[in-house]
Simulated assay, not measured.
Amino acid sequence: MVPAGGLSGGLLILWRKDLAVFSVLETSSQLVVGKLEVIGKGSWIIASVYGSTDAQERKLLWENLEKHCSVDLPLVVGGDFNCILSQEEKRGGRKFSMSQGSKEFQQFLINSDLHEVKASGPRFTWCNSKSGSARIFEKLDRCLINSLALNTLQVALVKHLSRIASNHCSVLFEMFKPVEVIKRDIQYEEVWASYHGATALVRKIWNRKSIGNPASILNLKFKKALRGLFSGLRRNTII
């Protein structure tokens, strides 16, 4: 835990001891970096960030993080960066301009081989809680991973949750969510008959020898013909 300073700042890391071991590597007022050993999932570097509103102090954050980004392990960096990169990440208030702080953040992402995970939910993660024309929304919170993590994870999901008792959205990053296999029935489309090669494909499947009673054979050939047409169209082999 890094204590808060007044009404802002502060970091708290929690983990389940029966699933993982977390070893702290570095702490400061803006970050906690640690090595997470997940049972059956290997070793990961996890960095939780609470960036300063002061650009000069954030520069120290980028320098401290870069040291850990060079490690040959999957890396996840997440939290409140207190910095935006474009007008698309802001609504209300003064028009966005690429400040020195934003340029340094952008350069840090390039130097550190960090990629933002696409998120679902509210577009902006922070609101100044004012009303009318004084209301401002910004995307201050995000989740970043390096190329090694990108190649390791089958599915990486980020969700911006609703703001509750805070002017920030909670950010949920699911690293090891199992891949859901959706089974669906394939239905014949009339337009398939107009594609070149479709007739020959069906004839080839239909002429294959099958074993079983007539009803089972007929049903099997229907299924194989539908699957063949569907797969052939997706690979553009019968168009």
Rank of each mutant, 00 (worst) to 15 (best):
S102A: 10
I84P: 03
N128V: 02
N111L: 12
Q107R: 05
L114R: 01
S120P: 06
K130S: 09
S129H: 11
L65D: 12
Q107C: 09
L65A: 07
L109E: 04
D80H: 08
V76H: 12
G92A: 00
F108G: 04
C69E: 03
G78D: 01
W126Q: 03
G78E: 01
S129Q: 10
V76G: 08
F96E: 01
V77T: 05
K103Y: 10
N64T: 12
N64F: 14
G93T: 00
L65N: 03
K103V: 14
F137V: 01
A134V: 01
T125N: 02
H68P: 13
D72K: 13
E66Y: 13
F105P: 03
N128A: 00
V117R: 00
K130Y: 15
W126C: 07
Q100D: 09
P74S: 00
M98E: 05
Q107W: 12
L75H: 04
L73C: 13
V117E: 01
S86N: 03
V77G: 02
L60Y: 12
N128R: 01
G121K: 00
Q100N: 07
L109C: 08
D72V: 14
E66Q: 14
C127S: 14
G78F: 14
G92I: 06
G132D: 00
E66G: 06
V117C: 02
F96I: 02
G92M: 08
E138C: 15
F108R: 00
H68Y: 15
W62F: 12
W126E: 03
V76P: 08
I136S: 01
P74G: 05
K118R: 08
C83D: 05
K67P: 11
R91W: 15
Q87F: 09
G101K: 00
E138A: 09
S99P: 08
I84Y: 05
E116G: 02
E104H: 06
L114N: 06
S133L: 14
E104I: 07
K103M: 14
S129I: 05
E138T: 04
S102V: 08
E116D: 10
S129F: 15
E66S: 14
L60C: 12
R94E: 12
E138D: 11
V71M: 11
W126V: 04
N111D: 13
I110N: 09
F105M: 10
Q100K: 04
K118D: 13
S112P: 13
I84S: 01
L114F: 14
H68Q: 09
Q87G: 05
L61Q: 09
E116S: 09
E104M: 03
E138Q: 11
I136H: 07
S129C: 15
I84Q: 00
Q87L: 11
K118S: 07
H68S: 11
R58S: 10
W126G: 04
N82A: 06
W126N: 02
Q100M: 08
K59S: 12
K90S: 05
A134L: 12
E63G: 10
A134I: 04
R58P: 14
S102W: 04
K67G: 11
E104A: 10
G121M: 01
L61Y: 15
R94K: 10
L60A: 07
V76Y: 04
V77P: 10
R135E: 12
P74M: 04
E88V: 07
F137T: 00
S70V: 15
Q106N: 06
K103G: 07
R135S: 13
K67I: 15
I136M: 08
C83W: 12
F137L: 13
G132T: 00
G78H: 01
S99T: 05
F124R: 00
